[in-house]
């Protein structure tokens, strides 16, 4: 039946979209590590990958939206699914913007803070990974989505704490002038904001899951 063929195509598009977001977060983490280690070529290559993934996620999101509307699919949950895709797309968009700022502004980060930045990027990646897992569960088993939503909130809280500690440390560092302190704070906030975006998606997912279970 044509309806099942269309459904299979959209299902795989959604899966591909979620893969792109997840992979984007992973490459984002590695790109921050490359920058900190001064491997410029590697950083540029990873930035290009994130840009490419962001473009692909945009295209997939638009295709899914067009298919859902033109085929009048999932009328009850169409709005929720499209909002989920749109806000998930914001995560990779934010990650790309953050890396582009690294590329343009080239902040000088003292080696003493490298580990803190690395740990922040790692926690942000874990947070995005958990929200993508929750999104996948939302489509098949909405009750199980909440298990991953707890993880999202946990990692987001941890990212907030790491970001706060990092900013506190930077401003307490006597070796840095005010301009540099502000510049480094700006990048700590930029990385942390990716986790905030993931938490926003998790909050929506919690409501959508309840709606699906009713």
């Amino acid at each position: 039946m044509p309806i099942f063929r269309t459904t299979r195509i959209i299902e795989s598009q959604i899966e591909e979209f979620l893969d792109a977001i997840n992979e984007g977060a992973l490459v984002f983490r590695d790109a921050v590590a490359s920058y900190l280690e001064g491997r410029d070529e590697d950083f540029s290559a990873k930035l290009a990958i994130v840009e490419d993934l962001e473009t692909r996620a945009d295209r997939l999101s638009r295709d899914v939206e067009a298919s859902l509307y033109s085929q009048s699919l999932i009328p009850e949950h169409r709005g929720d699914v499209l909002a989920l895709l749109e806000h998930s797309d914001d995560i990779i968009d934010r990650a790309k913007t953050c890396l582009q700022r690294f590329d343009v502004e080239r902040p000088r980060i003292p080696a003493v803070w490298h580990d803190a930045y690395r740990r922040l990027a790692e926690t942000v990646f874990r947070c995005v990974e958990a929200v993508i897992m929750a999104a996948r569960r939302f489509f098949r088993d909405p009750a199980a989505a909440s298990d991953f939503l707890y993880q999202v909130h946990h990692y987001e809280g941890e990212a907030d704490q790491l970001g706060l500690d990092l900013r506190r440390g930077i401003f307490a560092d006597p070796g840095l002038d005010l301009a540099q302190r502000q510049h480094l704070r700006y990048f700590a906030e930029g990385i942390d904001r990716v986790a905030d975006m993931a938490e926003g998606v998790a909050d929506r997912l919690a409501i959508y899951s309840i709606k699906r279970r009713m």
Partner: peptide, 17 residues
């Protein structure tokens, strides 16, 4: 439906059929 864990879209198609 809960036990089968069918994808939302597949569920929609099955409901239509």
């Amino acid at each position: 439906l809960r036990r089968s864990r069918i994808h939302l879209l597949r569920q929609d198609a099955l409901l239509r059929a």
